[in-house]
Nucleic acid binder design. Sequence first.
DNA 1: CTGAAAGCGCTTACAG
DNA 2: CTGAAAGCGCTTACAG
Lengths: 343, 343
Amino acid sequence: MSKKKRITQKMIAQELGLTVTTVSKALKDYPDLNANTKKKIQDLARKWHYIPDSHSLALRNQQTQTIGLIVPEIVHFFFSNVIKGILHSAEEKGYQLIITVSRNDRKLEERQLELLYTQQVDGVLISISNETMDSNHFQLLKNQGVPIVMFDKVLQDFECKKVLIDDFKGGEMATQHLIDRGCQRIAHIRGPLAPSNAIGRYQGYLQALAKNNLPIKEEFVKVCSQVNYDEGYSFAQELLQMPNPPDGIFAITDQVGVGALRAAQDLGVKVPEDLKIIGFSNSQIGQVSNPPLSTIHQPGYEIGKTAARLLIDEISLAENSPQMDNLTENYILSTKLISRAST
Amino acid sequence: MSKKKRITQKMIAQELGLTVTTVSKALKDYPDLNANTKKKIQDLARKWHYIPDSHSLALRNQQTQTIGLIVPEIVHFFFSNVIKGILHSAEEKGYQLIITVSRNDRKLEERQLELLYTQQVDGVLISISNETMDSNHFQLLKNQGVPIVMFDKVLQDFECKKVLIDDFKGGEMATQHLIDRGCQRIAHIRGPLAPSNAIGRYQGYLQALAKNNLPIKEEFVKVCSQVNYDEGYSFAQELLQMPNPPDGIFAITDQVGVGALRAAQDLGVKVPEDLKIIGFSNSQIGQVSNPPLSTIHQPGYEIGKTAARLLIDEISLAENSPQMDNLTENYILSTKLISRAST
DNA sequence: CTGAAAGCGCTTACAG
DNA sequence: CTGAAAGCGCTTACAG
């Protein structure tokens, strides 16, 4: 500690034979100061590299200029892009970002939320864990006046702003694309049962089948728990070894889709001739697979940018009109189909 | 603001007709309190969900339990893994992490450093931008008593702990592997000129050629600026269209390597028969390309974990023995060759 | 066993 | 034009 030689207003005041009050005013460019005094202070501050202490400011202003983020995973193309978008908006508005990871663990998510509260973040951005079914911990935070914005994986019955894509439509689009390409027996390797986005995509899949009068076969739906390459591989293997295998697979993510692609190739099933595969997200992995994977583009960067902006707006608003209730409002960003050689 | 209803010790004291002093002691479990009083306080604190204000603590203790991170990029497999490792160690020791990105811009890096200083972080972890050649901004921070640990992209002449792999050895290993596989005309698509790791890998490449009495051809060395798939693609295209094209390519990263792989395939050059390619890092992208890419494993998670631990140790040490100089010390984590179908 | 006081670094309404 | 005072939330050496 003693090693720290942080320059404070007090030191500047002492050096110049003034008081902190005057120094503070000079640094904030108050009009009612002697121009000369002001200049002397500002010059010394610059020379000594004075930088204000944010904790002191936080204490004084009850505002930390910091937002907290909780994501389920960090080694993840989509979430990396979201973070990039958040940082973009945060920088723009002079906010810092504290990042935490829930590892899809409901308990850990709660703990991270508490830590962010301890840090007095002005607001929280979150994509909830796959395990999270209730909103008690979010409600607690909200009751303390900390605004929350959810994105991607959201909790339907929690009142807050949400930034999303239309997963239902995306799922339908993906499945319809397979149908348009001539598939008749379409399997779906879906995400876990709880997350809102996995449900949406699954329902979109069902909808597309129904609309086209294609039969819905329970054995053609596989449920991932890890949602990774290996699961894609092994589920595809199972599917392709059935007596009447599918001729199309809609995978919940590109990771899973690329795993399925490899399984097909290892079994000698030709893609796209014998089997067409479409993923979801437009991750880099699908761009470089061979053949490249068709997919639904999910705009991570824009989602992050939008979510952070909404949160920061809400923070500023809360300051001015404390009575403002933050009602649920869904911001749906658009997706698009990207057709590549796998379909 | 008025919306915030954060519970403070003062409120608890008022409710129970005590003073903050007593409340503070009870919450910190001081021994010299009436057991009954203590219990009453602790019970109410729990009931009201009291959570201490970290800024107040930071101000009081001159310790924020927060570390800052600056990385050149966030949408990046290697750095994501590093962050995961950092979060692991940080959590373990009760530290929070503020993340910023320099976008390989020296000016922005300096700005981020300043913001972290404003936030009073207890220490800084950094992988420097490709543009950074001098250490003035780091020296400034160090002079203020804020410990710094560098990783991956480091500044040779700045005194601090560094967590690295042996890029020279890695580059040599990769090139030697191509030679062992029968390559005689080996090209290198290298990183930018400044970064320590790009230089190390390049020198390792030269060393392997020299050791094996293979000629060093200037035209076989291409210099990336973006270090991405597209650059890998176009440089490989150039190389393969030479009158005497290379029979092996060592790419600075897997991204670049996979780009080169695709270029070869698009030109009808067979990999690995006519051309062998090896990348660097062991990113996921190389695991799923077709054929999968040989590479040098770079342990991102461990690098992050180690760097954060070292930093936190240094923070605690600085508290106790302020005179401690933090001399340069290199922590070299080991890499290994991963041979796949591309070589 | 409990509390009054000082202080961390800063801001701002108020006095002079 | 400058400064003394109070206060943000907390801790701790000291009094009683």
